[in-house]
């Protein structure tokens, strides 16, 4: 999460980053977001009933989904190296 948020800060204004948190209490999720999401470029929400996870067919985390023009163009599961993450940002904004 910290690396994703760091790269998201570099692409602020070019890419919207939405962090969808698995069901939990709002207090615990907000506390974790304050620790991980420090760039200000990543916005987040709590998926209280996991309906957003289900709509994207995500059954576990972390998972990243890149969308361009309303179409999913890239998806990865688990943690990925920073270089691959940067490549995903570059491909999405090319």
């Amino acid at each position: 999460m910290p690396v994703v948020d760091y790269v998201a800060g570099e692409y602020a204004g070019q890419v919207d980053v939405i962090a969808v948190a698995w069901a939990s209490t709002h207090e615990k999720t907000a506390s974790a977001a304050r620790g991980f999401l420090t760039s200000g470029a990543t916005r987040w929400l709590l998926d209280e009933d996991n309906s957003i996870f289900a709509a994207f067919e995500v059954t576990y985390q972390p998972v990243g989904v890149f969308a361009v023009n309303g179409v999913e163009v890239n998806r990865w599961f688990g943690s990925i190296p920073e270089q691959e993450l940067r490549q995903a940002f570059m491909d999405a904004t090319a």
Binding site: A8, V17, A55, G64, A67
Partner: peptide, 29 residues
């Protein structure tokens, strides 16, 4: 998926109305 997301900062994000690339990051606290 066409969804309307109510973000923690009070704003609303509509997935089908995005004007630039979007990274949806699924995570847990």
């Amino acid at each position: 998926p066409a969804l309307t997301l109510e973000l923690d900062d009070g704003t609303t994000f509509v997935t089908t109305e995005a004007t630039r690339p979007v990274l949806y990051l699924f995570w847990a606290e």
